Amino acid sequence: MTDRRATDPLLTVDSIDTHYGESHVLFDLSLTVGRGDIVALVGRNGAGKTTTLRSIMGLTPVTNGTIRKDGDELHRLEPHEIRKRGISWIPEERRVFGSLTVEENLRLAAHSGEDDQTERFDEIYAQFPRLDERRDQKAGTMSGGEQQMLAIARALLGPETDLLLLDEPSEGLAPQIVDDVADIIRELNERDVTVLLVEQNAEMALELADRAYVLETGEIVHESTADQLLADREMMEGYLGVK
Protein backbone atom coordinates (compact mmCIF):
# COMPACT_ATOMS: atom_id res chain seq x y z
CA MET A 1 0.00 0.00 0.00
CA THR A 2 1.07 3.60 -0.53
CA ASP A 3 2.95 5.20 2.36
CA ARG A 4 1.26 8.59 2.87
CA ARG A 5 3.06 9.75 6.00
CA ALA A 6 5.69 11.81 4.17
CA THR A 7 3.08 13.86 2.33
CA ASP A 8 0.19 14.05 4.77
CA PRO A 9 0.91 13.14 8.41
CA LEU A 10 -2.09 13.39 10.71
CA LEU A 11 -0.40 12.44 13.99
CA THR A 12 3.28 12.89 14.82
CA VAL A 13 4.74 11.56 18.06
CA ASP A 14 8.29 12.86 18.35
CA SER A 15 10.83 11.53 20.88
CA ILE A 16 8.48 11.24 23.85
CA ASP A 17 9.35 9.93 27.29
CA THR A 18 6.64 8.89 29.71
CA HIS A 19 6.88 7.96 33.38
CA TYR A 20 4.60 6.33 35.93
CA GLY A 21 5.93 7.95 39.09
CA GLU A 22 9.62 7.06 39.22
CA SER A 23 9.26 4.33 36.58
CA HIS A 24 10.43 5.28 33.08
CA VAL A 25 8.02 3.53 30.69
CA LEU A 26 8.47 5.05 27.20
CA PHE A 27 11.94 5.93 25.93
CA ASP A 28 12.46 8.47 23.12
CA LEU A 29 9.46 7.03 21.26
CA SER A 30 8.58 8.38 17.82
CA LEU A 31 5.88 7.34 15.37
CA THR A 32 3.84 8.86 12.59
CA VAL A 33 0.29 8.11 11.50
CA GLY A 34 -0.53 9.17 7.97
CA ARG A 35 -3.95 10.57 7.18
CA GLY A 36 -6.25 7.76 6.11
CA ASP A 37 -3.94 4.99 7.30
CA ILE A 38 -4.41 2.12 9.68
CA VAL A 39 -1.22 1.87 11.72
CA ALA A 40 -0.59 -1.11 14.00
CA LEU A 41 1.43 -0.81 17.21
CA VAL A 42 2.32 -4.33 18.27
CA GLY A 43 4.48 -5.92 20.94
CA ARG A 44 4.41 -8.29 23.86
CA ASN A 45 2.47 -7.64 27.07
CA GLY A 46 4.08 -4.85 29.07
CA ALA A 47 5.89 -3.35 26.09
CA GLY A 48 4.21 0.05 26.58
CA LYS A 49 1.52 -0.05 23.90
CA THR A 50 -1.35 1.12 26.10
CA THR A 51 0.89 3.77 27.68
CA THR A 52 1.58 5.13 24.19
CA LEU A 53 -2.15 5.60 23.58
CA ARG A 54 -2.64 7.11 27.03
CA SER A 55 0.21 9.54 26.33
CA ILE A 56 -1.35 10.63 23.05
CA MET A 57 -4.68 11.12 24.82
CA GLY A 58 -3.11 13.16 27.62
CA LEU A 59 -4.03 10.63 30.30
CA THR A 60 -0.39 9.86 31.09
CA PRO A 61 1.38 13.13 30.29
CA VAL A 62 4.74 12.98 28.55
CA THR A 63 7.82 14.24 30.35
CA ASN A 64 9.79 14.96 27.17
CA GLY A 65 9.08 15.23 23.46
CA THR A 66 6.11 16.45 21.46
CA ILE A 67 2.82 15.11 20.13
CA ARG A 68 1.14 16.93 17.24
CA LYS A 69 -2.03 16.44 15.23
CA ASP A 70 -2.24 18.36 11.96
CA GLY A 71 0.82 20.24 13.19
CA ASP A 72 -0.90 21.49 16.37
CA GLU A 73 0.63 20.59 19.73
CA LEU A 74 -1.39 18.17 21.88
CA HIS A 75 1.03 17.26 24.65
CA ARG A 76 0.17 20.28 26.81
CA LEU A 77 -3.61 19.78 26.55
CA GLU A 78 -6.07 18.10 28.89
CA PRO A 79 -7.76 14.89 27.65
CA HIS A 80 -11.12 16.59 27.03
CA GLU A 81 -9.37 19.22 24.90
CA ILE A 82 -7.62 16.50 22.89
CA ARG A 83 -10.98 14.80 22.34
CA LYS A 84 -12.35 18.03 20.88
CA ARG A 85 -9.53 17.96 18.34
CA GLY A 86 -10.96 14.84 16.74
CA ILE A 87 -9.20 12.02 18.61
CA SER A 88 -11.23 9.24 20.24
CA TRP A 89 -9.82 6.50 22.44
CA ILE A 90 -11.44 3.10 22.97
CA PRO A 91 -9.71 1.57 25.98
CA GLU A 92 -8.93 -2.05 26.64
CA GLU A 93 -11.87 -4.08 28.01
CA ARG A 94 -14.32 -1.66 26.34
CA ARG A 95 -15.64 -0.10 29.62
CA VAL A 96 -19.24 0.41 28.56
CA PHE A 97 -21.75 1.29 31.28
CA GLY A 98 -23.20 -2.14 31.95
CA SER A 99 -26.20 -0.96 33.96
CA LEU A 100 -27.31 1.40 31.17
CA THR A 101 -29.02 0.46 27.94
CA VAL A 102 -27.37 0.72 24.55
CA GLU A 103 -29.37 3.87 23.87
CA GLU A 104 -28.35 5.42 27.19
CA ASN A 105 -24.66 4.66 26.58
CA LEU A 106 -24.87 6.38 23.22
CA ARG A 107 -26.84 9.34 24.57
CA LEU A 108 -24.14 10.00 27.16
CA ALA A 109 -21.50 10.11 24.43
CA ALA A 110 -23.65 12.33 22.22
CA HIS A 111 -24.05 14.89 25.00
CA SER A 112 -20.30 15.55 24.86
CA GLY A 113 -20.75 17.13 21.44
CA GLU A 114 -21.68 20.74 20.89
CA ASP A 115 -24.06 20.14 17.98
CA ASP A 116 -27.34 18.30 17.59
CA GLN A 117 -26.43 14.61 17.21
CA THR A 118 -29.84 13.35 15.99
CA GLU A 119 -28.70 12.76 12.42
CA ARG A 120 -25.49 11.14 13.62
CA PHE A 121 -27.53 8.79 15.81
CA ASP A 122 -29.42 7.57 12.76
CA GLU A 123 -26.12 7.02 10.96
CA ILE A 124 -24.70 5.06 13.90
CA TYR A 125 -27.71 2.75 14.08
CA ALA A 126 -27.56 2.22 10.31
CA GLN A 127 -23.87 1.42 10.60
CA PHE A 128 -24.39 -0.92 13.58
CA PRO A 129 -27.74 -2.66 12.99
CA ARG A 130 -27.10 -5.07 15.85
CA LEU A 131 -27.07 -2.11 18.23
CA ASP A 132 -30.27 -0.82 16.68
CA GLU A 133 -31.90 -4.16 17.53
CA ARG A 134 -30.70 -3.87 21.13
CA ARG A 135 -31.40 -0.21 21.88
CA ASP A 136 -33.26 -1.04 25.10
CA GLN A 137 -30.97 -3.85 26.27
CA LYS A 138 -28.62 -3.32 29.22
CA ALA A 139 -25.08 -3.15 27.88
CA GLY A 140 -23.78 -5.47 30.57
CA THR A 141 -25.98 -8.31 29.31
CA MET A 142 -24.61 -8.20 25.76
CA SER A 143 -21.85 -10.38 24.33
CA GLY A 144 -18.26 -9.18 24.26
CA GLY A 145 -18.48 -8.54 20.54
CA GLU A 146 -21.64 -6.48 20.91
CA GLN A 147 -20.05 -4.47 23.72
CA GLN A 148 -17.05 -3.79 21.47
CA MET A 149 -19.40 -2.54 18.76
CA LEU A 150 -21.06 -0.28 21.34
CA ALA A 151 -17.67 1.04 22.48
CA ILE A 152 -16.73 1.89 18.89
CA ALA A 153 -20.11 3.48 18.17
CA ARG A 154 -19.90 5.52 21.39
CA ALA A 155 -16.46 6.82 20.41
CA LEU A 156 -17.85 8.13 17.12
CA LEU A 157 -20.44 10.32 18.83
CA GLY A 158 -19.73 13.69 20.41
CA PRO A 159 -17.03 15.79 18.70
CA GLU A 160 -16.31 14.60 15.19
CA THR A 161 -13.64 11.88 15.10
CA ASP A 162 -10.98 11.61 12.42
CA LEU A 163 -8.41 9.65 14.46
CA LEU A 164 -9.41 6.58 16.43
CA LEU A 165 -7.10 5.01 19.03
CA LEU A 166 -8.10 1.37 19.51
CA ASP A 167 -6.67 -0.66 22.39
CA GLU A 168 -6.95 -4.46 22.10
CA PRO A 169 -10.33 -4.57 20.30
CA SER A 170 -10.15 -8.36 19.81
CA GLU A 171 -9.41 -9.20 23.44
CA GLY A 172 -11.62 -11.99 24.77
CA LEU A 173 -13.61 -12.38 21.56
CA ALA A 174 -14.36 -15.56 19.63
CA PRO A 175 -12.57 -15.87 16.26
CA GLN A 176 -15.70 -15.16 14.22
CA ILE A 177 -16.45 -12.06 16.27
CA VAL A 178 -12.84 -10.92 15.81
CA ASP A 179 -13.47 -11.05 12.06
CA ASP A 180 -16.62 -8.95 12.53
CA VAL A 181 -14.70 -6.33 14.52
CA ALA A 182 -11.97 -6.28 11.86
CA ASP A 183 -14.63 -5.62 9.23
CA ILE A 184 -15.94 -2.68 11.28
CA ILE A 185 -12.44 -1.20 11.52
CA ARG A 186 -12.00 -1.52 7.74
CA GLU A 187 -15.35 0.14 7.14
CA LEU A 188 -14.52 3.03 9.46
CA ASN A 189 -11.23 3.52 7.66
CA GLU A 190 -13.04 3.59 4.32
CA ARG A 191 -15.14 6.39 5.82
CA ASP A 192 -11.98 8.47 6.31
CA VAL A 193 -11.31 7.58 9.95
CA THR A 194 -7.58 7.15 10.55
CA VAL A 195 -6.78 4.35 13.01
CA LEU A 196 -3.91 3.70 15.43
CA LEU A 197 -4.43 0.10 16.50
CA VAL A 198 -2.85 -1.54 19.54
CA GLU A 199 -3.42 -5.27 19.38
CA GLN A 200 -1.98 -8.37 21.03
CA ASN A 201 -3.30 -10.42 18.10
CA ALA A 202 -0.45 -9.32 15.85
CA GLU A 203 -1.53 -11.21 12.76
CA MET A 204 -5.03 -9.73 12.88
CA ALA A 205 -3.60 -6.23 13.33
CA LEU A 206 -1.08 -6.58 10.51
CA GLU A 207 -3.65 -7.93 8.10
CA LEU A 208 -5.67 -4.75 8.71
CA ALA A 209 -2.84 -2.23 8.78
CA ASP A 210 -0.95 -0.21 6.19
CA ARG A 211 2.09 0.28 8.42
CA ALA A 212 3.39 -1.17 11.65
CA TYR A 213 5.64 -0.39 14.59
CA VAL A 214 7.02 -2.98 17.00
CA LEU A 215 7.39 -1.83 20.61
CA GLU A 216 9.75 -3.58 23.03
CA THR A 217 10.17 -2.40 26.66
CA GLY A 218 9.11 1.14 25.82
CA GLU A 219 11.16 1.58 22.65
CA ILE A 220 10.34 1.28 18.95
CA VAL A 221 12.55 -1.54 17.63
CA HIS A 222 11.09 -1.96 14.15
CA GLU A 223 9.10 0.04 11.60
CA SER A 224 7.90 -1.16 8.19
CA THR A 225 4.84 -1.75 6.10
CA ALA A 226 2.49 -4.22 7.73
CA ASP A 227 2.97 -6.67 4.85
CA GLN A 228 6.75 -6.62 5.30
CA LEU A 229 6.48 -7.35 9.02
CA LEU A 230 3.91 -10.08 8.49
CA ALA A 231 6.26 -11.78 6.01
CA ASP A 232 9.28 -11.55 8.35
CA ARG A 233 8.78 -14.71 10.38
CA GLU A 234 12.01 -14.22 12.34
CA MET A 235 10.87 -10.78 13.50
CA MET A 236 7.35 -12.05 14.20
CA GLU A 237 8.65 -14.85 16.39
CA GLY A 238 11.47 -12.95 18.04
CA TYR A 239 9.53 -9.84 19.09
CA LEU A 240 5.90 -10.99 19.02
CA GLY A 241 6.07 -14.69 19.83
CA VAL A 242 4.19 -15.60 16.65
CA LYS A 243 5.44 -18.86 15.06
Rank of each mutant, 00 (worst) to 15 (best):
120 R>W: 00
29 L>T: 12
192 D>Q: 13
160 E>A: 14
146 E>G: 02
155 A>K: 01
15 S>A: 15
134 R>T: 12
137 Q>V: 14
38 I>R: 02
118 T>N: 08
81 E>D: 14
9 P>G: 08
161 T>P: 01
211 R>C: 12
236 M>W: 13
53 L>M: 08
170 S>N: 10
48 G>T: 00
109 A>C: 13
190 E>F: 00
138 K>I: 07
125 Y>A: 06
194 T>C: 13
172 G>S: 07
160 E>Q: 14
79 P>S: 05
193 V>G: 00
165 L>K: 00
80 H>T: 01
63 T>K: 15
79 P>F: 01
165 L>H: 08
185 I>W: 02
87 I>P: 06
28 D>V: 08
41 L>N: 03
137 Q>F: 13
7 T>M: 02
162 D>H: 14
62 V>E: 11
48 G>V: 00
195 V>Y: 06
182 A>E: 13
174 A>L: 08
189 N>T: 09
3 D>A: 03
125 Y>W: 12
129 P>Q: 07
22 E>K: 14
166 L>Q: 05
219 E>A: 15
151 A>P: 03
121 F>Y: 13
205 A>M: 07
9 P>R: 01
191 R>Q: 13
12 T>H: 10
177 I>T: 13
38 I>M: 10
73 E>Q: 11
153 A>F: 05
114 E>W: 04
90 I>L: 06
133 E>L: 12
176 Q>T: 14
237 E>K: 10
239 Y>R: 07
83 R>A: 14
164 L>D: 09
171 E>I: 12
87 I>A: 06
143 S>Q: 04
95 R>E: 09
163 L>W: 10
157 L>R: 03
229 L>W: 10
227 D>L: 10
135 R>V: 06
149 M>Q: 08
221 V>E: 04
241 G>Y: 13
20 Y>F: 15
76 R>F: 06
135 R>M: 11
135 R>I: 08
171 E>V: 10
225 T>R: 00
34 G>E: 01
130 R>I: 12
243 K>W: 05
40 A>K: 06
170 S>R: 06
81 E>N: 11
42 V>L: 06
19 H>D: 14
200 Q>C: 13
63 T>R: 15
74 L>T: 12
77 L>A: 12
5 R>Q: 13
201 N>W: 04
153 A>I: 07
45 N>I: 00
170 S>G: 07
235 M>Q: 15
146 E>L: 10
168 E>M: 10
160 E>F: 05
218 G>A: 01
55 S>K: 00
